[in-house]
Design a protein around this nucleic acid. Structure first.
Lengths: 312, 312
DNA sequence: CTAGAAACTTGACTGAGTCAACTAATTCGT
DNA sequence: ACGAATTAGTTGACTCAGTCAAGTTTCTAG
């Protein structure tokens, strides 16, 4: 069956399904390693849950792990008979009892836990540090997007420039403005040029760049370059569509302003286009004033360029 | 049990395990929906595999899906009895037979396939377009990093330049040479500069670029730029570490040579560094001669640059 | 040409998970 | 406040997915 995906939608569905099949196998492999323990896979899942969370009832377990009530009942009875588990009647509901592992239960769980831990650690160990971070970040993202994890306490983090960053920024901006506004590749080339020039002429005393990260992936960036002793320019502000509404853009601009003030610049300037309305709102809120507009034909489109200034 | 992870390593292992548990449940949910079909989960996996790939034998299936040979044997016999499957004796090995679904088999599979497809599509539909892209991208990443990229019938494909490509190439090269050889960001900047200049001064009659794609991801690239009427230069040859050994590098160089010959160039030249041995092998095999070497200090390292030429 | 391995097949089994029927406690609607 | 419906858990009876070991036939390496 030659599946030639017709639309992006279909391609996404195909990728999702491919991933599910892939991970089903992967989980199978992970579980095989467990098979010299005295517990079945489901038993391990139950013990794991009991070890992690306190105050569980049988129905909690059944619901969360998707187990049959009858099967679970017997399983728990077996655990209790082996002395791994105690049940104390619930105070609020006489039908339920609260489950908790005994010392023996924890002792039985420890080697399993360790084996699983070591197995994963070994797998991660085979990757480079960068790939490891990348992998874990991607997993967090999948989990978050499929509704499996609450947002972290800290929704994003700022850091400085690292290898690979400017390419990534060029890639994402090139793609975004091409799909969203139909700009051609000369825009991407311009971004590449600006980013390259920034790195080559980088003067840490006067310039800086910030990358916003979320779940190990880059979701935004901004560059501050020196134009003269008095004037700094904010360039390449960018926030991923999937990370909007978290205040990342505002925060990046704030960092720029703070840095510019600190270094004694008098004016912060920037160039943008009128169609980029969400960026405009950020600039306005930060106190920038529109000083100039001019029509131009760039990136295959007729556009209205804008210069904005902020007195520091 | 309040798990306060000690080190980043531990945090990564914890995140991985959390993801595995999460996805185990998620897969459970996905599979439940399948449970008004006449097939068991394993049967569905087998049919799916048979529908996707031609020329499978029983042992292929057993190995790939991790099934017991005895169980699989009976399962296949059942399918054959129901007329879903035919076995034709292998020509090369009389012990094996090649399995293929009958029309009836495909017909039985179709509604399952559709149900699974629709279920995933519905899940994706609940997300915003940006989140959808983010999710699928993250899944692809996990799969790539865990080494799960499935072999397509066609291991890779060449295409021209599209928006986002040059940024991606810059990103990957910047990252690769930083991790592998410790080069600093000025290398990434150089790549960005070259790529930007290529796009800005692109002359389709005299120049070209090729992107190698595999499983929907970019795995290699090469650029051909005009230096004079007589001389063309090959630049930014690059193959992903995960896609080496497929002849992608060779193929990209061949395309360049073909194009350069066609346009009537007399010489194809390129610049590289002596430490890049796998690239060197490709150039040698293609007939390039080393014409010049010179020491230089770039990208934070002492290097030996090389110029290679090919008479067309 | 032979020993050992690979590709299945078959018989005998186990045990994970299902289903339905039951008891007891709780909650809901009016 | 009271009966009906719901929820928590238990138990018996069952099924069928998956395992294990012992076989046959074919292939391969020495």
């Amino acid at each position: 069956m030659d599946h030639v995906p017709a639309s992006p939608q279909e391609e996404q569905v195909a990728a999702f399904r491919a991933f599910s099949r892939f991970y089903t196998r992967r989980i199978g492999l992970l579980e095989e390693h467990l098979y010299d323990s005295p517990f079945s896979l489901t038993e391990v899942r139950v013990i794991y849950e009991l070890a992690q969370r306190a105050g569980l009832t049988a129905s909690d377990l059944g619901r969360d792990l998707g187990l049959d009530a009858g099967y679970l009942s017997r399983l728990l009875k077996r655990f209790e008979a082996k002395g791994l588990l105690t049940r104390t009647p619930s105070k609020t509901d006489a039908r339920q009892s609260v489950l908790s592992l005994t010392e023996a239960g924890r002792a039985a769980f420890a080697p399993l836990d360790r084996a699983s831990h070591d197995q994963i650690a070994a797998m991660l160990g085979r990757l480079s540090a960068a790939d490891r971070e990348d992998l874990v970040g991607a997993m967090r993202r999948v989990q978050r997007l499929l509704g499996g994890a609450p947002d972290a306490d800290e929704p994003f983090r700022l850091r400085g420039l690292r290898p690979g960053d400017i390419g990534w920024v060029v890639h994402r901006q090139g793609l975004l403005y091409a799909t969203e506004y139909g700009w051609d590749q000369t825009f991407e080339a311009l971004v590449a040029e600006i980013a390259a020039a920034f790195v080559k002429r980088f003067d840490p005393a006067w310039e800086n760049a910030w990358i916003a990260e979320r779940d190990g992936g880059i979701v935004g960036s901004v560059f501050l370059v020196r134009q003269s002793d008095e004037v700094a320019k904010l360039r390449l502000l960018y926030v991923e569509a999937s990370a909007r509404g978290l205040g990342i853009g505002r925060r990046l601009v704030e960092e720029c302003i703070r840095f510019a003030r600190e270094r004694g610049y008098r004016t912060l300037t920037l160039w943008t286009n009128d169609i980029l309305v969400s960026a405009r709102r950020i600039y306005e809120a930060a106190g920038f004033r529109l000083v100039e507009e001019e029509r131009h034909h760039s990136f295959g489109k007729d556009l209205v360029g804008q210069n904005w200034n902020l007195d520091l």
